[in-house]
Amino acid sequence: MNTVRAELRKLLTLPSLRLTVLLTWTANLMVTYAYAAAESRGESIGDNAALAPLGYTQAGFLVLGVLAAASEYQEGGQIRTTLLAMPRRRHLQAAKALALAALTLPVAAATAATSTLPADGATWTPAATAYLTLTTLLGAAVAGVVRRAVPAVVLLLGLYFIAGPLLRARSAASASYLPDTAALDPSRGATASIIWTLSALTLAALSLHRRDA
């Protein structure tokens, strides 16, 4: 319990996380507005307008997870302090995930609500909240393995925004195995999201357990 409390405190006192949340919210409002405006101009973009903005704002949540995890390895070498204070690494990894999820959940709920409610998609709000939270944990897990923020961001955004759409364009039907399918169609991609996140977290835990700090 002490460990979770310490991890929560760490996250709450990181200015970069606050900034990421603010930027994500601003971007979400803008994209939601853009979709609504395009719709009212009679320009259809073809996606489900209730969920489409999430396709963009999920980037903010990936970055949130990356920054939360990579901050340990940035300048100053905070990871050593963390491991000296909490040497049980499996414990630590669980506490980290728990703290990040607790912090992300309200942020994700607010984001999901602002983009789904104006498009009459209230039924999607819980699913979208869960999806964004899982995405944040996935981002944190990847950054926990990569240990550096910029490469982790390049890797994740490259996969989500460049490789993903290409794979989906080739075979739309079988793309439900991708981690971000749930952003487009929660009913189809939920399992994939959960499995991807859990696997990434497991990998991060193994990496933390095995490697020298």
Binding site: K10, G76, G77, R80, L84
Partner: peptide
């Protein structure tokens, strides 16, 4: 324990 550096994140 004291190792090199402060062991603190620069933004905190």
């Amino acid at each position: 324990a004291l190792l090199d550096g402060s062991g603190a994140h620069r933004a905190r």
